[in-house]
Design a protein around this nucleic acid. Structure first.
Lengths: 153, 153
DNA sequence: GTTAATGCAAACACTTTGCAGCCGC
DNA sequence: GCGGCTGCAAAGTGTTTGCATTAAC
């Protein structure tokens, strides 16, 4: 089954109409391994259906976000989206190469707990992105893909 | 001595001209206890010098940022600035009331060390902001100011 | 006197909104 | 058929840029 099948179900279940535009937006988001920007969603959908409008993309994304079907990260200005069904995880985004690496939630759990305990502050860490410099762009000469399993600095 | 005296020195030292506009922008940023947005900088300077232009505010801020004299945080779209001389610290920004609370760097040090160790990823944590919900806007009925010393959740 | 910086206006990118017609249910 | 959704166009934000004039050095 497609990765976005559940999202489609959710749309219907919540009484929203299942339009081709919505399905197309969803499948573009689902197809991409990484986060997608609005611009990319638009151009990919337009390749199949040229009448697709920006406003519709935005409206669809807002809806999907509202229903919790996609999550948004802001890495340096532009918003990017991905299916939230993909399991909760966070990202490290390299400011040099733009590469994004997954970060398990466990890395942030402790941080979150501390903020709640010490300040009563509940951080929005559903989907969290840290900017920085990845191993390959830093001192290291490893490929971005390899960085995810790199164990030293 | 004024909080922004050092910044003024730095401007001159790096061969940039010391214009009244730059001084005004700097003092507005220095006066504010929290981060200031571009809009606020503009309106405050305009109160004294009505010809102040947006473009000048932006250009000045870019320059100051480049020289490392101010730091920028992005809390939900809009950029805000503060004197970076104020000692390194981070922020928790409440998405309900917009209140910002300081967060000591020690809270993030461990997180940073882990990312570097496990992934070789060097996060940009010079100035870090977490969005979330503060104690007073959450279940609590304490004032935002009190939240900073709140010890429970 | 040079040259960088300003003011002004126009351009920009990104996102939102109003509205008439369309189509999923 | 009803009402939500779309396409289109226009309007909002927040930020940047081109250019002639001004003023810091």
């Amino acid at each position: 089954m497609t990765r976005h099948g559940a999202a489609i179900e959710a749309l219907k279940r919540t009484g929203h109409r299942l339009t081709p535009q919505r399905v197309m937006v969803l499948s573009v988001i689902a197809e991409q391994p990484a986060h997608v920007g609005v611009e990319e969603i638009q151009s990919r959908v337009k390749a199949v259906y040229p009448y697709m409008d920006q406003a519709t993309v935005y409206r669809t994304i807002h809806l999907l976000k509202e229903l919790g079907l996609v999550t948004e990260i802001q890495a340096g200005g532009a918003s990017r989206y991905e299916l939230s069904a993909s399991g909760r995880h966070h990202h490290m985004v390299c400011r040099e190469c733009g590469g994004a690496f997954d970060l398990s939630p466990s890395y942030l759990e402790e941080f979150r707990a501390t903020l709640v305990r010490d300040f009563g502050f509940e951080p929005d860490l559903d989907h969290f992105a840290v900017a920085g410099r990845c191993a390959s762009c830093g001192g290291k000469r490893v490929s971005p893909a390899a960085a995810i399993s790199t164990e030293r600095k």
